[in-house]
Write a protein that binds this DNA or RNA. Structure first.
Lengths: 335, 335
DNA sequence: CTGAAAGCGCTTACAG
DNA sequence: CTGAAAGCGCTTACAG
């Protein structure tokens, strides 16, 4: 498995260049207090030898690791990662962090064992900071991570928001806009399919729905989903049984909407003629449903990038204030 | 930002327990050659102090890092990661690796700069091994990684398969089965929409399509896609112009099929009555298209897990032989 | 079975 | 501006 060439050390470079290790270290780390001639000697030797600093040794000496953990607190069922959001979030955050010269350690913390592993990992001083993507309200991980004494931020508001700063979408505003849109279209019996009720995003989207309906003197009709397609399909079936006359559905995310669309189709309802449907997130698939899905745009990518930047800012003494990103209705065919 | 409590060192444990550092190290590492009483003393001190080994120091001493890189060679456009495969692969591989006690470092290598970063990272001795997910044939990264002298495997056959062992699906077999299914249904003008032609998976699926058609004395009708929905929609439009009478399409993946379905719908074609459609991959979304998509199952999750196991096996002197995983047709409504 | 000592490859005060 | 030396927190032959 490879030549296993021993990599040159800083010491080898020093010998080769005929200077001290200190000088090599300074040059390699870009310190300015080095005489040009020494600098050249070192640079030359570095090139000749193909020297690359051993970051393990560097980390030990500096007590920094230059790596940031992206911790995805995925429930055992694997809810999140089947979501297109998973890739959007991981990717955008990685890009941002890497662009800032940080290494990224991805950690999936689904099972209790993997939670322990993550805890150990952070406790072992392996990371300088952490970006948390937690997906259920009862998750004990945020509290554990928060007390580890490293900068940490959350992608999405936590059930315990005081634990750490976060970046979130304007779930309340977006959901309200969606429901008002249905109202404006003259829909009378507007149902909703919520996300998992222990998640703040699901709670917000639900309570905005309720508030808007209440203000307009209408009754709430709800079923509980869990942000998956299949839960949307099931919930829609239940809703149709409960109230066959409903004429609109606000789905707490696009995946739920996609599931709901299938059930509506199978029950012979036309969308939007019989039943209007609005989703949330504006994932790419929303462009390919039949009819194309009207939805609330919440760029998870942008949100993840903003979360990463918030974290990076923390290292430079930046503000630890939550940030809420705007959402907007995207009207297509389904409502 | 936290209490910044200095973490106890192995030395502190030794002092507390009244034994040598060597003994503490042995106990902590589970060596059996330790007297029970010493063991107890150490364990007690470890617990009292809340000792967690500093893995940076350990890595420096052992010259191992216990971490494996998952390197996603994502083209700049971001093709892969919009794909549901991204999450399936990252997740399954992570789980497998973590279960084996390895740390996972996720690296996105899209741009030339990030390729350099990955190279440096591996060269810096930060990882013990790497799992590569490369997405285009001209990718220079596999060759670079392959010569770094660490165990490395590829998720999917590379354009240069000799560089490292890999795990792949039976793309040839699966595609052949799909096309034969269309033939068996009496379809006469069977088109295909390929993936990016520099990717082995796309090549295989295309050549199987061609071979089967040739054997049956039929003509190939093809358009090139890139494994995205939008490319499927566009390619389908082109195909319909080229040959309005076509009665079947084999899409190189489900995303392409989803795009093609939209174009067919908009052009007034009924599926499967006028045009039959078969996809490839069997992603969850295939269950929610209208009509539900007939497709070839290729569990990316299982494949990624198998890739991870192949890599882990390499560390124990396991075989470095490629493995091909079976595929199977899933008949639903679209064909 | 146990411990003293050297070593892993860097960084960083401290003198000069 | 430069270098010798100590130190980061572990592991691991080597004696005993």
């Amino acid at each position: 498995m490879g030549e296993n060439v021993k990599r040159p050390t800083l010491e080898a470079v020093a010998v080769r260049a005929g200077v001290s290790k200190s000088s090599v270290s300074r040059v390699v780390n870009g310190e300015t207090t080095v005489a040009p001639e020494i600098r050249d000697l070192v640079l030359h030797a570095v090139r000749e030898l193909g020297y690359v600093p051993n970051s393990t040794a560097r980390n030990l000496a500096t007590k920094r690791t230059n790596t940031i953990a992206i911790i995805i607190s995925d429930p055992p069922a694997g809810l999140v990662s089947d979501d297109p959001m998973f890739s959007a979030v991981v990717r955008a955050a990685s890009r941002e962090l890497e662009a800032a010269g940080k290494q990224v350690a991805l950690m999936l913390a689904g099972s209790p064992e993997s939670q322990r592993r993550v805890e150990q990992y952070v406790a072992a001083g392996h990371v300088d900071g952490a970006l948390l993507v937690s997906m259920h309200g009862a998750d004990p991980l945020p509290a554990l991570i928060a007390r580890m004494g490293i900068p940490v931020v959350s992608h999405g508001r936590l059930a315990a928001p005081w634990l750490m700063p976060y970046v979130d979408n304007d779930n309340l505003g977006g959901a309200a806009q969606a429901v008002r849109h249905l109202l404006d279209q003259g829909r009378r019996r507007i149902a909703t399919i919520s996300g998992p009720l222990d998640m703040p995003a699901a709670q917000d989207r639900l309570s905005a729905y309720r508030d808007v309906l209440k203000d307009s003197g209408r009754r709430s009709i709800m079923a509980v989903g869990d942000f998956t397609r299949v839960s949307g399909a099931d919930a829609m079936g239940q809703l149709l049984e409960d109230d066959p006359g409903l004429d609109a559905v606000f789905a707490a995310n696009d995946l739920i909407a996609i599931g709901a669309l299938r059930t509506l189709r199978r029950s012979g309802r036309r969308v939007p003629d019989d039943v209007a449907v609005v989703g949330f997130d504006d994932i790419e698939a929303a462009l390919y449903t039949d009819p194309a899905l009207t939805t609330v745009r919440s760029s998870m990518g942008d949100q993840a990038a903003a979360t990463a930047r918030l974290l990076l800012g923390l290292f430079d003494g930046g503000p630890a204030d939550p940030v809420i990103m705007p959402t907007g209705l995207v009207v297509r065919e389904s409502a």
